[in-house]
Amino acid sequence: MPGIDECLLEAMRLPGARGAALVDWTSGLALGTVGESPGGDHETAAAEAAELARLAAEQHAFASDSDPQETEADPPIEDLILSNRDSYHVLRFVPTSFDSSVFLHLWLARAEGNLALARIRLGEMAGRLVLG
């Protein structure tokens, strides 16, 4: 997969996809955005999603039991799923070989979206983006 935009465009092909973004959760920077943005502004949406992702990634309660503290995965969680009355948000953390803190954010319309499929596909895309 060639780059960030291609990865996001692939995410937009999922049924019900309304918008997708690649966001750095330490700084809140949107490294790429495609489609609509929740709330109408990509930058604000990225900053808000980053804050949520950071909080989730920093809580020990959400880490996997099988990770001993010393070798804990970074970040310790895989994805975050949030739903409201008309849409789903899936935040998928992207593991990279170098030090980074990014996640894919997919916004899905609830009527057409398939949460299970989106979650699986996002995981595959996150892997391909950085691991080839």
């Binding site: 960030i4 291609e6 070989s97 980074s100 990014v102 983006l129 691991l131």
Partner: peptide
């Protein structure tokens, strides 16, 4: 010297470094 860095990872890292 190690695993190749994909174009996606390179683009990601370059943007992060630029900002």
């Amino acid at each position: 010297e190690g695993a190749p860095v994909t174009p996606g990872a390179l683009e990601l890292c370059r943007l992060v470094a630029l900002y």
